[in-house]
């Protein structure tokens, strides 16, 4: 009887047991840290000294300390320039690689490789070799009679260097775009050609509208990643010069792991989370106006 009851219980709850490992992991490693970081953000929690004070002091400091607000502004600027550039570049290359070209598979692989390499130490060294005052770019510039550029002499120059690092890693977005482009029916292009539409017209009037769900997906993922960017500025520019590439992620890292001020790090992380959430929410709300889902009637 007992085993019958057990069998019934298992049969009725099999789905639950399937998701149970994930659920345990989710609660332990996501929900609990998420909730506790919210609590810690209202404390002066220090890994070595514990909590001795609670209140709004971390948030007060974030909104009144010009260096911290500047880091948020730099992060914002970084994301605003990086995401559109990367998406445009990824879509452009995907569009070209969607043509029936000779050796196209080689080029697809070649363009994807930078994404695999990611923000590693080796790439940081490569990037420095390209952008330093005696680097590859300046070698080309001086060969054509130009003046050497010190990218790190200005805030915008330094930011450009780390934005380019992420734009260069456009491979994963490109592969997703490529898959979407393959899903656009050839019939539409044929019909448009018969009607006299040129390549650009076809691209903007057929391709782009039909892949808007994928553009939307890439926009959201790239936006989240850009706001959380760490490796590029940490490894290549070290947040310099003079805080010009100090993204908020670097401050969070230093507070959490160098100073062990988990309270402040949690507060900064929460502000960052709210910013990302706001941008994501705006994107979701705006999709009604520009994203085309073929399974929706009338749209």
């Amino acid at each position: 009887m007992k085993s019958k009851g057990m069998r019934k219980f298992l049969a009725e709850n099999a789905g639950f047991f399937f998701v149970l490992p994930w659920l345990i992991g989710f609660i332990l490693f996501k929900v609990y840290p998420f909730a506790s970081s919210l609590y810690y953000s209202f404390t002066n929690y220090d890994l070595f000294n514990g909590v001795t004070k609670t209140g709004m002091m971390n948030y007060n400091k974030i909104f009144t300390d010009s260096d911290i607000t500047r880091a948020f502004m730099v992060t914002f600027k970084y994301a605003i320039f990086d995401v559109p550039l990367k998406l445009t570049f990824a879509l452009f290359i995907a569009y070209i690689l969607n043509f029936k070209l000779k050796g196209v598979n080689f080029f697809r692989t070649a363009y994807y490789i930078p994404s695999i390499l990611g923000g590693s130490i080796a790439i940081a060294i490569l990037w420095r070799a390209v952008f330093n005052t005696d680097g590859l770019i300046n070698a080309v510039v001086t060969a054509f009679g130009g003046e050497k550029i010190n990218w790190m002499a200005s805030a915008n120059g330094a930011l450009f260097v780390i934005i380019m690092l992420r734009v260069w890693q456009f491979g994963s977005a490109m592969v997703i775009f490529l898959a979407a482009l393959k899903g656009v029916s050839e019939d539409l292009y044929e019909a448009a050609s018969i009607d006299g539409a040129g390549k650009w017209t076809q691209f903007f009037k057929i391709t782009v509208p039909l892949i808007t769900p994928v553009i939307f997906y890439n926009l959201i993922t790239q936006l989240c990643q850009a706001f959380q960017e760490f490796n590029g500025p940490f490894l290549v520019t070290k947040g310099g010069p003079n805080g010009a590439t100090t993204l908020i992620s670097i401050l969070i890292y230093n507070n959490a792991f160098l100073r062990h001020k988990m309270g402040m790090a949690s507060a900064q992380a929460w502000i960052l989370f709210l910013i990302v959430m706001t941008f994501t929410a705006v994107a979701f709300v705006s999709q009604k106006k520009w994203v085309y889902y073929s399974d929706e009637d009338g749209r």
């Binding site: 330093n132 005696d134 010190n150 790190m152 290549v236 010069p241 003079n242």
Partner: peptide, 17 residues
């Protein structure tokens, strides 16, 4: 200036070309 040193993009001074 620190901008000049930053422009060298070296990990540290001993590794600066």
């Amino acid at each position: 200036t620190l901008a000049t040193i930053s422009g060298d993009m070296a990990d540290s001074l001993d590794k600066n070309a």
